[in-house]
Amino acid sequence: METILGTVYGCFEFLFGPFFAEYLWGYNCDTQAYDNPNLFNSIGLTTIAIALTIVLLYYYFLNHPRLNGAGHWFIFLLLASAINLLVAYFWTVSDYVSGNIQDCLQYTRDEAGNILAQLIYKTDCWKFGMANAWVSAIVFVIFSFMLKWWSSNCKHSPTLLKYKK
C-alpha cells in the first residue's frame, strides 16, 4: 500500500534518475534503510489533492457553461500540472539546496573519499517536476471521468460521447 505511489512515479524514473528516486523513497544513508519520509507518498498525495481540487473547481465550483468544451478542460488539466510541477520542484530543490539529500545518494566516492561521480543534479528537481506534471495529468483524467457525471454544465467535458450537431 505504501509503495503504490512510488511505483506509479517509477514509470517516470527515466526522467529524474534512480538515485533521485532513492532519495524520494526515503533511503537513509546512515541506517541503510528506507526510514526517511517517503516523499513519493507525501508529494504524491499533495499532487492528488491539488489535482482533485482543480477537478472539483472545474466541474462543480466554476461549473461554467462557457467552459465546458474539451479545450477548456484541457487548460484546467494544464493548470493542475503546472502547479504540481512547481510543487514537486520546490519541495525537492529545498532539500537539495539545504543539503538534506545525503551524500551516498549524491556522489560515488572511492575508498579515500574522493568524488568519482555525481549522481544527483539540481536539474533532476526540474525533471521530477515534469514527472509530477505527468502524474498530475493522469490523476486529473481519472478524477475527471470519475466525478464529472453530476456536473450540470460540464458533464460532457472533455468527451462528447453522443453528440450530433
Binding site: P65, N68, N153, H156, L160, Y163
Partner: peptide, 9 residues
C-alpha cells in the same frame, strides 16, 4: 451557439 450544451445532448 449552444448545441453542445448538456441540455441538448
Amino acid at each position: 451557439d449552444s448545441y453542445k450544451q448538456p441540455w441538448t445532448i
